[in-house]
Computed example of a mutant assay.
Amino acid sequence: MANRPTLKTIADRVGVTVSAVSLALRDDPRISRATRERIQQAAETLGYVYNRHAAGLRRGDSGTVAVCLNDLSNPFFTEFLGHMEARFREADRMMLFCHAHETPSIQARFIRQMAEHGAAGLILVPVAGTTREDLDGPQVRHLRDFPLVLISRDVDDTGFDRVINDDEMGIRLLFDHLYAAGHRRFAWLGGGGDTSTARDRERSFRQRMDAAGLPVTTETIHHGPTSLAFGDAMLERLLALPTPPTAIVCFSDIIAFGVLAACYRHGLRPGIDISVTGFDDMGAAAYSAPALTSVRVRTDLIGQRASELLLARMAGERHPPVREVVPPELVVRNTTGPPAHGGLVQR
């Protein structure tokens, strides 16, 4: 295989210095237009390709940013990618990407590999169960003073920038909408205690129930995976209760879609016979049948802000870590309405 042409190869071909070639290929006006054109033509003829890796070593900046998402089986998390990629492309940065499969060991391995390959910064949606020790502990000394921004899920007391959704506010908006419509029998589906989003949303639900003077019992709170199957199966259990709920508040749109599918098997009309809400407002929420009432997480604002914070850290900013909370929006569609007269009746 022929040797890859270098700046010196071009310089020898044109009869100029290597520094002149470097400037000309960056279209620097210090090199005359005629000479720039000769150099650029020679580079094209020789098949010269800019060696970003070598340039990065000289600058101490690889030009790449890493993004690690927790779970691509949930389309919600992919929505961040488009907003971040556009901003990094604008900044002439290339993205390294990892799908952690909600697995701590995969996340930890990627973080180390990212550092080994010289990534200049990292945006992370932490996998379930991620702790401060996983980001600040002795096993990750390579992250000290490293540009890192957490999005979507929070990790308490960590020394990195975080940009997250106001999950407690989102549940308040949903609950108050349902309560104002007349609902008094609620069920909560999903979540758990392994992520900040699950903890914050459930805590807010319990607080709203308490403020309304409504009891929270073992028939009210139901934990499970963020999956269609969980939502589908849970409607079966809820309908079997002596007094089924009239409103089902789901941790995520994915669970809510599963509930909607089960409604049709039972001849129930969402929004008329029973109210169902999601959270995240994924793109599909507006196109379910009927369209899903949900809380819109501003993935655009979170992704863009996280990108800006990371680029600023990579440029050398050293202000104390920030925790920014982005307010969501309630989107009322057709899966919510007043409770059916006399409560839920199976058809």
Rank of each mutant, 00 (worst) to 15 (best):
D157S: 05
D157N: 12
T158M: 11
G159P: 12
G159M: 10
F160M: 03
D161T: 03
V163L: 13
V163S: 13
I164E: 01
N165H: 07
N165Q: 06
N165S: 10
N165L: 08
D166E: 08
D166R: 04
D166Y: 07
D166G: 05
D167K: 10
E168I: 09
E168L: 10
E168Q: 15
M169W: 12
M169G: 04
G170Y: 13
I171H: 03
L173P: 04
L174T: 14
F175Q: 08
F175L: 02
D176Q: 15
D176Y: 09
H177Y: 09
H177P: 03
L178F: 11
Y179P: 03
A180L: 02
A181Y: 12
G182N: 03
H183K: 00
H183D: 00
R184Y: 08
R184E: 02
R184L: 00
R184Q: 08
F186T: 00
A187V: 09
A187C: 08
W188Y: 11
L189A: 09
G190I: 10
G190N: 10
G192S: 11
G193Y: 13
D194N: 14
D194T: 15
D194I: 13
T195G: 03
T195W: 06
S196W: 01
S196P: 07
T197S: 12
T197E: 02
T197L: 02
A198I: 03
R199I: 11
E202W: 07
R203G: 11
R203Y: 08
S204A: 13
S204Q: 07
F205M: 13
R206P: 01
Q207K: 14
Q207G: 04
Q207N: 13
M209Y: 04
M209R: 02
D210W: 08
A211C: 00
A211Y: 00
A211H: 03
A212G: 05
G213S: 01
G213L: 02
L214N: 05
L214M: 06
L214Y: 02
P215I: 07
V216C: 12
V216P: 10
V216T: 15
T218I: 10
E219L: 14
E219H: 15
E219D: 15
T220P: 05
T220S: 03
I221H: 06
I221Y: 03
I221W: 04
I221C: 09
H222K: 13
H222V: 06
H222P: 05
H223G: 05
H223T: 06
H223C: 01
G224K: 02
G224R: 08
P225H: 12
T226S: 11
S227E: 05
S227P: 01
S227C: 10
A229P: 00
A229M: 00
D232Q: 10
A233M: 03
A233D: 08
A233L: 09
A233S: 09
L235R: 12
L235T: 11
E236Q: 14
E236F: 14
E236S: 11
R237N: 14
L238I: 01
L239I: 14
P244W: 12
P244F: 12
P244I: 06
P245K: 10
T246F: 05
A247I: 11
V249H: 05
V249D: 01
V249M: 13
C250E: 05
C250H: 09
C250L: 04
F251D: 08
F251P: 05
F251Y: 15
